[in-house]
Simulated scan of single mutants.
Amino acid sequence: MTEPSAQEQTTPADHDPAHVEVDNSFENDSSYGDELSRYTASLTSSVLDYRHENGRRYHRFRDGSYLLPNDETENDRLDMMHEMFLVLLHRKLYLAPIKHPQRVMDLGTGTGIWAIDFADEHPDAEVIGCDLSPIQPTLVPPNVKFVVDDIESDWVDEKDQYELIHARYLVISIRDFGKLIKRCYQSVKPGGWVEFQDWDGYPLSEDGSIEDTGFKRYYNKVFSAFEKAGYETRPGPKLEQWFKDAGFVNVHVERLIIPYGVWPKDPHLKKVGAWAQAQAETGGFEGSALAALTRYEQWTQEEVILLASEARADGRKRSVHVFFHFYVVYGQRPEN
């Protein structure tokens, strides 16, 4: 097969914006209604043409850029995590000292539950949730809207737009947090706030009880695969420096503990730990591992399920006292 000549090759940059060719395949009448419906239906179907793999469903838009499922099992797990975070923060959706927000962005909104709760609390604010998957409900407060987009791609015309930009639980889904936070700096209004809530993904134990367990092996294997694919697995402790590098002032850091299970004596931590274990056992172990290990480490589905079952079994042992560090970091764009 011969290569096309230079005159035949075209790229988007080759098109003269003053001369846009008409698509005559559409019927020529006085209304764009039918054509618009047909075209947007095609676009919508491409976004909803989900990828099915190893018994789970994944997003199709920007296929492969996010390695966790978007099926009902995963959506239930995300809503459980939302409750866990509310318990952790004593029913607060955010900690930044915002006042009278008019426009708010929720990055990686998932099921949209944070955006919906925020909209209910602030009925005068417009809340925009952005995610790769259109999995959010249709019956939402009138001041909420959801958009399908990749938050790591270029943002168009979003400078100085928001009083608050919020992001939660982006671990193992973002490759360049520093770049993303700099974009947030450009998009938030002077005097506005950006808040990220995220994990140090690796589990810990003060008494060494995590050593030689399937729980530790699970995280070592799975996070190694994510790191091989270029994803950040420990964003929490790095957020403060990323915020300062981006130019934020009044940067505040809260480091919190999320236990796994009900082993803590403290009633509050016990409740948080119960939610942490419940969400992980609601498909979390398998869902977080399947794509990363089968696509990047050539594991079989059966091997991943066995690894997950070993982690689940050791996590249930009363002698294993595992916890994670979770960070809430917010900063303000300078007024000037």
Rank of each mutant, 00 (worst) to 15 (best):
T2G: 13
A6N: 10
Q9R: 15
T10C: 13
P12G: 12
D14W: 06
P17C: 11
E21I: 15
E21L: 15
V22C: 10
N24Y: 15
Y32A: 14
G33A: 15
G33N: 13
L36I: 15
L36D: 15
R38Q: 12
Y39G: 00
T40D: 13
A41N: 13
S42E: 13
L43S: 08
S46K: 15
V47A: 10
L48C: 09
Y50I: 08
R56K: 10
R57T: 14
R57P: 09
H59A: 11
N70M: 10
N70I: 12
N70V: 13
T73Y: 05
E74L: 04
D76C: 01
E83L: 10
V87S: 04
L93W: 01
L93N: 09
L95A: 10
A96Q: 02
A96C: 13
P97E: 08
I98L: 01
H100K: 15
P101A: 07
R103E: 12
G108F: 07
G108T: 01
G110Y: 00
G110T: 00
T111N: 04
T111Q: 04
A115P: 06
A115Q: 03
I116T: 00
F118V: 07
F118Q: 07
A119P: 05
H122P: 09
A125H: 02
E126C: 11
E126D: 14
C130W: 08
D131K: 05
D131P: 02
V140S: 04
V144M: 03
V144R: 01
K145S: 15
K145C: 13
F146R: 04
V148S: 04
V148L: 02
D149A: 11
D150Y: 09
I151K: 04
D154S: 12
E158F: 03
Y162Q: 06
H166C: 07
R168G: 02
V171A: 09
R175D: 12
F177P: 03
K179W: 11
R183S: 11
R183Q: 11
C184F: 08
Q186T: 13
V188D: 02
W193S: 10
V194N: 05
Q197A: 14
D198L: 01
Y202K: 10
P203G: 01
S205R: 05
D207K: 04
E211R: 08
T213N: 05
G214K: 00
F215H: 07
K216N: 03
R217K: 13
F223Q: 00
A225E: 09
K228M: 14
G230Y: 02
K238E: 02
L239V: 08
E240G: 02
F243Q: 06
K244P: 02
Y260M: 10
K265L: 14
H268D: 02
H268E: 07
K270M: 10
A278L: 12
G283H: 03
F285K: 02
S288R: 01
A289R: 10
A292G: 01
A292H: 02
L293S: 07
R295W: 13
Y296D: 09
Y296T: 12
Q298R: 14
W299K: 02
Q301S: 12
E302F: 04
V304D: 01
A308I: 03
E310Y: 09
R312K: 15
R312I: 12
H321V: 02
F323Y: 15
F324Q: 09
F324R: 05
V329D: 04
G331M: 00
P334M: 06
E335H: 13
